[in-house]
């Protein structure tokens, strides 16, 4: 049983007019076996939360903590956080020319497990994981994300999720820009991951569409840099009907 605990997390970014606070005290706990959805309007800070937890240098943590069991993550480097068990599926996966998918995955797996995977089974595992998300065998030899379509990049993120199998995964708008078939394939990959029962998932999304495929145990409404409402899957249904307007207006009144 593991726990990813975000407590009163405050984060700012540098802007032309000086530092700007984006996260204003985020509290959220994900336990292994749980699926949490974070939903909110554009610009509410959802992606900032994902990148701050993963350790992107652009975001400065000014207060609060993020712990994975007994480990404080905020003091760790990006790769140390990953080795502690964290994974971020990115909204815009980065292209790395000249580095093959296969080489990248082997290097990552070696770094995470502390030893090189067995060549024989690993190649099979990689090909199987790529095929499960509808990427044929040629992708293993291609440069990482280079020339991939938007959908192929997202599928590749989910193949990585399955292969690297972290304790906790944050999916940052993995559903955005996917057509209906890709959305189904990606969701099935995520469900295989959570079906293990001892993994935690934080699903960040703008739309309720993906929640038709991935059933959340908890839904958090995120507005203006913090969680403004929490509930079960029914909260997502309510948002589908009412939109974020009520929460956005309430946040303005508070400000």
């Amino acid at each position: 049983m593991s726990e990813l605990r975000i407590s009163d997390l405050r984060v700012e970014v540098e802007t032309e007019s000086g530092p700007k606070e984006i996260l204003k005290g985020v509290n959220l706990t994900v336990r292994s076996g749980e699926v949490h959805a974070i939903m909110g309007p554009n610009g509410s800070g959802k992606s900032t939360l994902a990148y701050s937890v993963a350790g992107h240098p652009k975001y400065r943590i000014t207060g609060g903590s993020v712990t994975l069991d007994d480990t404080e993550l905020t003091g760790l480097t990006v790769d140390e956080r990953a080795r502690a068990g964290l994974f971020l599926a990115m909204q815009y996966p980065i292209e790395v020319p000249g580095v093959s998918v296969a080489n990248f995955l082997r290097t990552a797996k070696t770094a995470l497990s502390g030893e090189a995977p067995r060549v024989r089974t690993w190649v099979k595992d990689v090909n199987a994981a790529l095929e499960r998300v509808g990427l044929d065998g040629t992708f293993a030899a291609r440069s990482l994300n280079e020339g991939f379509s938007g959908g192929e990049k997202k599928r590749n993120e989910i193949a990585q999720l399955e292969l690297l199998n972290p304790k906790f995964a944050i999916l940052d708008e993995t559903d955005s820009g996917l057509d209906i078939d890709a959305l189904r394939i990606v969701s099935e990959g995520v469900n295989r991951y959570t079906a293990q029962g001892d993994r935690g998932l934080l699903l960040i999304t703008h739309y309720t569409r993906i929640l038709n495929y991935i059933k959340p145990d908890f839904v958090h409404v995120f507005v203006d840099g913090h969680v403004v409402e929490e509930g079960g899957a029914e909260l997502a249904d309510q948002l589908e009907i009412e939109g974020y307007d009520r929460f956005v207006r309430a946040a303005r009144v508070d400000a």
Partner: peptide, 20 residues
Amino acid sequence: FYLRSRGIGEDEARRLVVHG
């Protein structure tokens, strides 16, 4: 950042990028 977010250490990530 992308490479390191998959657990790859800083030196190894640099090595991969230059190599690539």
